[in-house]
Design a protein around this nucleic acid. Structure first.
Lengths: 260, 260
DNA sequence: GCGAGTCCAG
DNA sequence: CTGGACTCGC
């Protein structure tokens, strides 16, 4: 079974590249973040016409929004609102074999890495805190994936030094993410298959004139698994060419293949 | 010589259909209204690449804006601001044979046809008043064309009765336009070639589900000429198919062929 | 409805 | 730089 994750930055605006990705990579399950669409307007037909008949969505009006589409039966498990602020940042399902799949869109955290002057940064750290509590109590085989908006390792960013004070790579975020990882002994599948210090990015800003030439990337998207599930992982890849497709998302998809 | 006029509703957004029209109709001169672009951002290359090397523009930041593009040499004559409000609603040139060509975009006039409650309606009537003064003093062969935003005749609208109180077909506008026409004995070339009561429209609202099926059109675009020039007119046509092209303007082009 | 502006978030 | 919401004018 192949499980993918992609911050799509508006699922309606990305019909063409989603279709191309599903045809080329053929994941069994795709977790989407930043769908930016209310449930009523979700492009169900797009996915059904490609064989992804099982669709679990958690959308909202303008920002955020997550979804899971699958060509295998999936059962909705929960849609958590850890901060009780009605932001659609999580949806969880159960795969046919009983493994849980948790799709999450962690807040970006604004510009200034200071919770005093920038409440969004505080919200991000608080969100991680709530996730840590939740994660510590999980007690079954689980995959946790999505846009975490944190690039923890030096080789997860184009310049460790220049990004130390940039939200997504600050020490406090990296520490907090480490606590989340430790809370359930999560295996970072990206780095399991492509170990540091190899370059591994999943996001490049729209603002760069030529994203590939400057290559100022960051690894913001992740797929983690509990040890029992990680033992079944046989391959992991990131789809860098998607960043060059017409009307691209600023994120690329990631995908892990499991032997189940 | 073939002279056309078209309210293009954003010249930048219409590159494809402008190109198609210029190739199919091959006017020598095209007057544009509602270019919606400042002079610096005008798409010069689009027109030059199609052989329209002579470009006279009078643009502004957001609304309005007029332009004349030609494949024959044209000399800028004037850019009038009758109401001294810096709205770009006129540009005049001189054709190679000395005939003047005046391209005008008369204000739409807002929703309510009452100068007390709707200042825009007053502005429209005032604009016409200034044009009447100007027109009366013209003393050489002239073509006056553009989006007049008035459909004067019963057969210029889909329903005379239903539009009597709708801005563009109210008696006060029709009278005022008649005074403009009388001010220099202008010949209405559209009706010269396609006499009333034949149906003749140049505009259909975007709001109709199926513009062609409901056919609630109005003749808002006109080409007038002084009698000496009108005597040289050999054909006039409106290009209704353009309203069905991809990403259409709500107006269609009109074109008169002259024997000079 | 449709374009262009503005603002916000990324 | 990008997408979506909003406001405005036609």
């Amino acid at each position: 079974m192949k499980i993918a994750s992609w911050n799509i930055n508006s699922v309606r605006f990305r019909a063409a590249i989603v279709e191309q990705f599903l045809k080329e990579a053929a994941p069994d399950v795709l977790c989407l973040q930043e769908t930016k669409v209310v449930d009523d307007d979700f492009p169900f037909e797009l996915f059904r016409s490609l064989g992804y008949d099982h669709i679990i969505i958690h959308g909202q009006r303008m920002h955020h929004g997550v979804a899971i589409v699958a060509r295998v039966p999936i059962a909705e498990d929960d849609r958590l609102d850890w901060q009780a602020n009605a932001e659609a940042r999580h949806v969880g399902i159960r795969l046919p074999n009983g493994v849980r799949l948790e799709n999450v869109y962690i807040p970006a955290g604004g510009d200034v890495p200071d919770r005093e002057v920038n409440p969004k940064f505080g919200q991000k750290l608080d969100f991680l805190g709530r996730m840590i509590e939740w994660s510590g109590k999980l007690d079954c085989p689980t995959i946790l994936t999505g846009d975490f908006n944190i690039a923890p390792l030096e080789s997860d960013v184009w310049s460790h030094k220049q990004l130390l004070d940039v939200v997504s790579h600050t020490p406090i975020e990296v520490e907090t993410l480490a606590r989340l990882q430790a809370s359930n002994d999560w295996v970072d599948l990206g780095r399991h298959f492509i170990p540091a210090p190899q370059r591994l990015y999943t996001w490049w800003s729209y603002r760069a004139k030529d994203w590939a030439a400057s290559d100022r990337g960051r690894r913001l998207d992740h797929m983690w698994a509990t040890r029992d599930v990680a033992d079944k992982a046989v391959a992991h890849q990131v789809f860098e060419p998607c960043r060059s497709w017409l009307k691209p998302s600023d994120h690329i998809p990631i995908m892990t293949e499991f032997d189940f």
